[in-house]
Design a protein around this nucleic acid. Structure first.
Lengths: 341, 341
DNA sequence: TGTTAGCACTCACTTTGATAGAGTGCTAAT
DNA sequence: ATTAGCACTCTATCAAAGTGAGTGCTAACA
């Protein structure tokens, strides 16, 4: 059996209708809804075929049909109206915030309010970015503050506790030593060999050097478990199919334990290279707890190499067109704010 | 009408029973539950009195009684078994973490897992703490990094964008100037007069000084909208009286918008001076969205002046004794970890 | 005078059965 | 190939009836 033009149209009609109402849709509805001028009986025959092909399914006998994951997939890939007019985002006063985290929180929030879905955004990770500057300074008799600045002005601090006090002159020397050898290198390039070499040059202060290197390593490590901000988790209560205790609880805890969303970010960054916007339907998602949702993600890039992920999480019957449109809008805005200036 | 011994015992029995079951409790149950050896009829009479006094109420005629807020209040203040053996906290591997936020997250989580309630913890705020150290360093031709270290080793960074480049020598001078004048002062003591004075001494660099002062101000301001960590928000789904869409949504969004919990922290810090542990029942809570919950809070102090708030949020019928006990346990642990070392 | 047994009453909850309505699948006619 | 028509299925809704927990009141009792 093949998917001919007419079947596609019917499938499209079923999905459209279901997206709107959230109720199973029957043959009579379709018969009027489309411009095919077919009787409900004919539609029924076609729908039986579509069901056999796996694009739609019946919650129970004598109910209408709802789209299956496969059906949604086809819809998103082929049938969806690609360029729909998307209304302006309300309250979208995206300003170049002083602080990155302010901006991210704002984006997540505005997106959640405008879409009525739950949203997340990961802070850009700076893979491949270069070390700009290291500074040690004494803050106490046996405490040293190590400040590590990476390109993109990401700053990491670490307080080092010394066993023996260090005089100012030595600290100065160490500063020079570290900066001459390390700045300009990417975090990946700073490896064990280099550290050994530095330790040697530092002579008796090798302990300090190794501590500082640990601090740098720490800075890298921290970058790895990346910051994720979320908003609008409570929006899931707007969709009855997600708000029963079991499911809601699962989703909510994922939003609280934001680290569980890491795999989503990872996956998006990997796959997102060619397409830009990624749609995960139901079980396709890399985050187990969202198997009853759909997730739409996009990769954004603020400056060269500073990539992060935005995600919108909603019911499978989310308004994919609007969500994709809104995300594209958002990308444009981010671009115009960050690339122009 | 007065609350005699017997009425108290009956009230206590009602509450105990309701805490366990979550179901309205009837006279016959009490008649057997207590060692009063009274018939259900007598209990009924007493319960009618208790209802008239406002300590219990009936969800509907011919249902048993449930405690009112006033009833809970009395229970918590007077009837509660103050020293109950509280089981050890599982997984309570509280270690002195390198990073404050790690510790706080850990505390919140362990507490949530052990109590089956939602938890929050606010990062200690450092009111009255002294400025330890300020350091300016150039990271780029027209960018300066300002690092502000406050007692307790709280570090704040700020990147300052300069209009005109500064040479190294000037930066050095500014460093000395700032440190000699500001270090040792509390953040509150650094006021406008002082800034004006510094600006004058800085001569042509007054712009920089004022920028730096802004950075310091920023550091203070940031401290003000305090960090709050939460855990176990999904625990509320374990209590049917809270898991209907309406209420759950309200609570969840409060946990997501953590700033909404600030008033709770504030209130606890104010009231917590004398008592240590604070119990808010229903409408007593300073956070509107938790009017159907009870909240138990405690003030902790890691080092002198570093005070924060821990909160446990659950249904009104929470196990107050266990929660209070667990919190006290926790305080002891925090103490032993942070004060001894 | 406080306590209790007994009883009528109330109200939520559950079960049952009947009904309506939406939707299907199949068949025969077009 | 399409469609009208019909029997069938299943859910949702409603009312009626029964059940059980619990109450309030009264009269008897110690």
């Amino acid at each position: 059996m093949q998917l001919d033009e007419r079947k596609l149209k019917i499938l499209q009609a079923v999905i459209r209708n279901y997206l709107e109402t959230g109720e199973p849709v029957g043959s009579r509805t379709i018969s009027k809804y489309t411009d095919l001028n077919l009787s409900s009986a004919t539609i029924r025959n076609e729908m039986a075929d579509l069901e056999e092909l796996g694009y739609i399914l019946q919650p129970h006998t004598s109910a209408g049909r709802i789209p299956s994951d496969k059906g949604y997939r086809l819809y998103v890939d082929e049938l969806m109206q690609k360029e729909r007019e998307v209304e302006e985002m309300k309250g979208m006063l995206l300003e170049k915030e002083e602080k990155m985290d302010q901006l991210l929180k704002q984006v997540a929030k505005v997106l959640a309010v405008n879409t009525n879905y739950a949203t997340m955004i990961s802070a850009p990770s700076y893979q491949g970015n270069k070390l700009k500057f290291i500074q040690l300074s004494r803050v106490d008799v046996n405490q040293i503050l190590a400040v590590v600045v990476v390109e993109g002005n990401i700053i990491k601090n670490n307080i080092l506790n010394l066993e023996a006090p260090l005089d100012d002159e030595t600290i100065l020397k160490l500063n020079i030593l570290l900066n001459t050898h390390l700045s300009g290198l990417t975090l990946e390039e700073i490896n064990l060999g280099m550290i050994a070499q530095l330790k040697q040059q530092a002579g008796i202060h090798s302990k300090i050097v190794s501590d500082v290197m640990d601090a740098v390593a720490e800075a890298i490590r921290e970058e790895e478990d990346l910051q994720i901000y979320t908003s609008g988790a409570n929006n899931i209560f707007k969709y009855p199919e997600l708000s029963n205790g079991e499911k809601a609880s699962e989703i909510i805890s994922t939003f609280e334990e934001k680290q569980l969303l890491t795999s989503l970010v990872q996956d998006t960054l990997e796959k997102g290279q060619e397409k830009g916007i990624q749609v995960y339907i139901g079980a396709e998602t890399p985050v187990q707890s969202m198997k009853d949702c759909s997730v739409v993600t996009a990769t954004y890039e603020l400056e060269e190499g500073m990539k992060g992920t935005i995600g919108i999480i909603g019911p499978k019957r989310m308004d994919y067109e609007k969500v994709v449109g809104t995300l594209q809008n958002l990308m444009k805005q981010l671009d115009s704010i960050y690339k122009k200036t």
